[in-house]
Write a protein that binds this DNA or RNA. Structure first.
Lengths: 230, 230
DNA sequence: CGTGAGGTTGATCGCTTTCAACGGAGGTGG
DNA sequence: CCACCTCCGTTGAAAGCGATCAACCTCACG
């Protein structure tokens, strides 16, 4: 559900869900979404939760005047739509062609009732979410634009990098608008700080969507220590 | 755990916890804290969770250079320290004389294993947390300083107001520093926007810590519609 | 090729921060 | 009892960062 979730946790979550789906019911189905298609809107009845099988979705909230805040991105293996209320508190849409596994909330809760250890695991997923959310608070509330962008790319880099690797190349699944709405910035500011990171050699951008990070540790240093050197 | 939690939910949460504590164990104890005393630090072993019995605490994260982000406030009836990891991901300290109920995490998990419906309730608490967290994201990422302060006071007002009442007077449990660190602002900006709200008649401040809100609905209008009138 | 969406870069504006001075409340000691 | 001090909050002036406005670029697609 959130981009902060570390790679190991993904696997952990994924394993759990596979477990549940095998365990619980047979009315579950796969939903396919194209780029920019909506999985559900804020206010829709929250009858199901979803597991991302392939692709990326984002959760977002809108203000009345159209301002948007992206709450988090959900990658393969992440859960979306977990909510106590009977209505979704946020919208969710695909950033690229995406497949999700639709899981009836009723069945899920039934399973939890019947099999305590499932509830325990689900609780752990929810708690992972809560802790994943906290970096994002610090980023939004207390970091400069430069640090925000560096933090964001560092997190993505660690997600995409192989175990133990310190360099990585990947394709950005989201646009500059999405990044801006996630970090509480404008697209121009995001773009300028991409350039700034490029000038300093922390990243390379052979194409708009291709990110090359030669040294993740180096990039990470920019994420908390305002680029004060000129 | 979070100031966004609505009053009804508090009661709901509180009822649950009372239930658990009766159900589970006998090694639970009450911890008393004075103003500014720490319940636990970021990185401490997370062996217990806490229920606030009286007073207010805040959860916060620090950056290396001392910048602080308050993640949320926890009032009477709220839970603190829920976490999947074995270390606390944030610090927690009292804002005023406070009593908390210390609940061994081990006992809690044992209870959940033995009594599935407890896990279900705990899960609902965690999910309430997640949804409570989302307003805060919008506030931090997409609102102006004026809207942030108005949003904050509106939430507090609804928490302290009697059921159905549209006006309320209460004492702020937190300092301007705390508010600033919660909203991602400086104390000066918080102070200026308190004054701005006062000039517009949305609030009154007979003393520093006394907030008078004659019309909560009116105050709320400022929380999403930038005070564009002069 | 023409067109449009997405991205970058430059110039300027304005909100929030920073720096600084002041004021009130509470506590302590002479 | 009052002078003094410190903490917290407010207010003013100036600086700086990110937003806004605007022009241009790149690429995919018809």
């Amino acid at each position: 559900m959130n981009v902060q979730t570390a790679a190991q946790q993904d696997t952990f979550v994924f394993d759990n869900i596979v477990d549940w789906t095998k365990a619980s019911a047979d009315d579950q189905k796969v939903v396919s979404l194209n780029k920019n298609e909506t999985l559900f809107y804020e206010g829709d009845a929250a009858e199901s939760i979803y597991e991302v099988l392939e692709g990326v979705v984002c959760n977002y909230r809108l203000l009345l005047d159209g301002r948007r805040q992206i709450l988090g991105f959900a990658f393969k293996g992440d859960l979306v739509g977990l909510s106590r209320a009977d209505k979704h508190g946020f919208g969710c849409e695909a950033l690229c062609p995406t497949q999700v596994h639709k899981i009836s909330k009723y069945n899920l809760l039934e399973t939890v009732r019947q099999r305590p250890e499932m509830g325990h695991k689900l609780l752990e997923v929810a708690m992972s979410e809560l802790s994943a959310v906290q970096d994002h608070f610090v980023i939004l509330g207390r970091k400069s634009a430069f640090e925000k962008v560096a933090s964001f790319l560092t997190t993505l880099a660690r997600r995409y990098a192989n175990e133990g690797a310190n360099s990585v190349t990947f394709l950005l699944p989201m646009t500059r608008v999405d990044i801006a709405d996630y970090l509480g910035l404008t697209i121009e500011t995001v773009s300028r700080n991409f350039s700034k990171l490029k000038i300093r050699g922390a990243i390379d951008l052979p194409q708009f969507t291709t990110i090359v990070i030669p040294d993740i540790d180096c990039l990470e240093e920019f994420s908390e220590s305002e680029g004060d050197a000129s």
